[in-house]
Write a protein that binds this DNA or RNA. Sequence first.
DNA 1: CTGCATCCTCTTCGATACTG
DNA 2: CAGTATCGAAGAGGATGCAG
Lengths: 230, 230
Amino acid sequence: MTDRGGYQQFCPLSMAAEIICTRWTPLILRELLCGSTRFSDLRKGVPRMSPTLLSKRLKELEEAGVIETRPRPDGNLDYLLTEMGEDLRPMIMTLGNWGHRWIESTVSLRNLDPSLLMWDMRRWLNTGHLPSRRCTIQFLYPEIPGGGRTFWLVVHEGEVDLCSIDPGFEVDLMVTADLRSMTAVWMGMTSLRAEIAAGRITVDGDAGMARAMGDWLGLSRFAPEPRRVA
Amino acid sequence: MTDRGGYQQFCPLSMAAEIICTRWTPLILRELLCGSTRFSDLRKGVPRMSPTLLSKRLKELEEAGVIETRPRPDGNLDYLLTEMGEDLRPMIMTLGNWGHRWIESTVSLRNLDPSLLMWDMRRWLNTGHLPSRRCTIQFLYPEIPGGGRTFWLVVHEGEVDLCSIDPGFEVDLMVTADLRSMTAVWMGMTSLRAEIAAGRITVDGDAGMARAMGDWLGLSRFAPEPRRVA
DNA sequence: CTGCATCCTCTTCGATACTG
DNA sequence: CAGTATCGAAGAGGATGCAG
């Protein structure tokens, strides 16, 4: 940050923007604030970012004091927010809530991505509203061609695993969904009930789990924000 | 934004970051939120940005619905925040306040710029604490070599003009300051009183105006935020 | 598998000059 | 004063390779 790259303004907004408002950085912060600490988990949240650039950004954030690294027992690194980094949560939420208020759903829903949706779903699943035994929920997006249309969420002792290849367990609940509808539900743009009624999402299997889907399916953290546009 | 440039995530944070977190954009928004509406005024707030890029960014913000343009009587354009754009104020303030809390003053104060400081000062001068007649305050930063070390703030009927060449009026008050000290005062990192006591800022001329300097000198909008670092 | 480094191509940015 | 055109330099993405 000698000359290029820096705005050369003493204003704190300028200094903050130099750290935070570079390409991909807000999304990396979102992942960290959502609890990801491993390089590979961070990558799942920003799948279109090259690992080289992710590595570079993490170093920059560490240099700025936003994160710190700690060796894990397995020999790899954990990337952890410092107090300075954790203090970015209100800013990230404010920006995301603004987006949710003002970005048209027709625009947001151009960027459908089942892996990303499932990864976020895994993160916020309310395991307390599922049976205490191990249970397996299969999601199928029939419109998606080839492999990659099927996902399994395996819940066991409060832990949730996302699989994109069949884990082999008996499936307790099978959700078949239009990807756009499932994403819209997740974003709070429509209701699960409405999409099921319209036949765009169907649920088969354990009746109790099916009935409680509105409870165990946590929505996006931005879904509660009231929208200002269609 | 077909493929490159976009994050391709439906998450509202991602959509918002595509619009807001591009190079220079937060600073342009700061200027707009502070009330600048003309191209030339916006440039004064981001003097190191090329006019080409400023023009491009303004078009992008208009396309996104954050600003709109309106023809002025003089034939040029006014750039005005829409409701969507005005709604970014909390986010920009949150980010700036974060910067003020966490960025070390030694880092911020590497980016001294007297023009920028004076431009911001002009913006927030409390004219109500100055005599109602026209008055002229001269600022001198002796350390700065060559021209560009002297500025005049001319206050007349509630309007403030910033001049970098002598407007020719009689000077009512003369402020001689170390640029770093004046900037630190402006940012709320130290007090005017302390810097005057230390001899790093001196004030000569109209005794009433000198005494009231703490009142008419509005500080940065971020100055009130309590700092977490030195 | 994790966490990069390297090489290459394409896009974006900055500096300067220029036009209505 | 309010922007636009041009061009070289830096940055970002993709593919590949590699050490632990």
